[in-house]
Design a protein around this nucleic acid. Sequence first.
DNA 1: CTCGGTGTCACTCACAAGTGGGACCCCTGC
DNA 2: GCAGGGGTCCCACTTGTGAGTGACACCGAG
Lengths: 214, 214
Amino acid sequence: MAGVVVCHASASVRERIVVTSLGVPLLAPVRAAASADELVVLARRLAPSVVLLDADLPAPGPAEAMRRLSQVAPQAAVVVLAGADDSEALERALALGARGFLTPEVNRAELAAVAAHVHSVSSLTPTPAASARNVEPRQQAAAPDTERTQPVLTRRELEVLVGMSNGRSNAQIGQDLYLSEDTVKTHARRLFRKLGASDRAQAVAIGMRRGLIQ
Amino acid sequence: MAGVVVCHASASVRERIVVTSLGVPLLAPVRAAASADELVVLARRLAPSVVLLDADLPAPGPAEAMRRLSQVAPQAAVVVLAGADDSEALERALALGARGFLTPEVNRAELAAVAAHVHSVSSLTPTPAASARNVEPRQQAAAPDTERTQPVLTRRELEVLVGMSNGRSNAQIGQDLYLSEDTVKTHARRLFRKLGASDRAQAVAIGMRRGLIQ
DNA sequence: CTCGGTGTCACTCACAAGTGGGACCCCTGC
DNA sequence: GCAGGGGTCCCACTTGTGAGTGACACCGAG
């Protein structure tokens, strides 16, 4: 059930994590992949619930790996393995749905925490700049960190996003909020920019991953 | 942080739950609302993380209550209070984003479980017919129950849904999967029907609430 | 064997969505 | 005082989406 796959270009990192996991009962079957291709093959077979992914994966890159992964194993929660300094790769990964991140030097306790919590936590987007590089259990990463570093949605933008997630059209959202459809479109445009979404479907996905909406 | 609001038409049910919660430290501030209007006012003030909602709420009904609630308190996880027999109201509520359900005769332990887990569990959609009426911690309600009772998406439909959540257009999804755009549209149409979604944004929201995608 | 579900592709059509401008008001902070 | 951000509305435009069909092939269950 709680299968874990680690995908990292460095053999030493893979081995460290596999060996580290040996002492953790929850992590039972940890498998290793050296490339995006291997990851896809493994993920298709094992349907893991957690994937630890190299943020500096060569070849197609981590973003493409996550895209492919999400197609063969959509249930998999992705945790990015990145140094505290590599914030750009991290941001891209988070935008694509990563659930948190760790450094490759992760210890046993951190791995156990991941196994226990990652797939039951709705949103884990710690502050990259603060180098808070551990996946924390619950409410920690919620309000304060998020509001400072990530683009904050205004009340209106959030209301529009909620309407979108409930399948309401711009016109209907306008009626709900006593606004004109054009105003709703303006809020939609701004929240797309803030979230880095290209359309409302992706905006809803990003909003839910970040815990902005339920 | 973990505020709880119970909204139920029956005063006895409200009081039962408020009194029951007194012994549970995690439930600290449980407030009661008798109607959707009261709920909205309370939720706006308290920003609760959990709302226990009467499935047979009169006046505007539970669905409308959830819609309004999601606009004043989008973070709130909704748990529906329904008898094991009332499966229609339940289904509608789940489609709108409810995170689980309980009977109004909920006991102290169940309330505590809700407080501890609801807002950190990604998806709780137990089998209505099986009268499994407790919110369970983790993986329980995931795979087996879901696959039997809820509409199951085919591999293709799931792949299309994933593409949608990544902000890809039908044409792009077609390229990703080596399909024509028309085929993608067909899969989209069928998955909309299965999920009860009116557009791709809602389909993504429902898919994420049910844990079909991340 | 038949039927239902799935996968594939095609066509049309109305309309929603997304994007680019511009405009005005209000408030807050420098 | 003025810049900036938010909130509101407007116009115009291009694109994509969603709805409604029809069609054919495959496969597995009954």
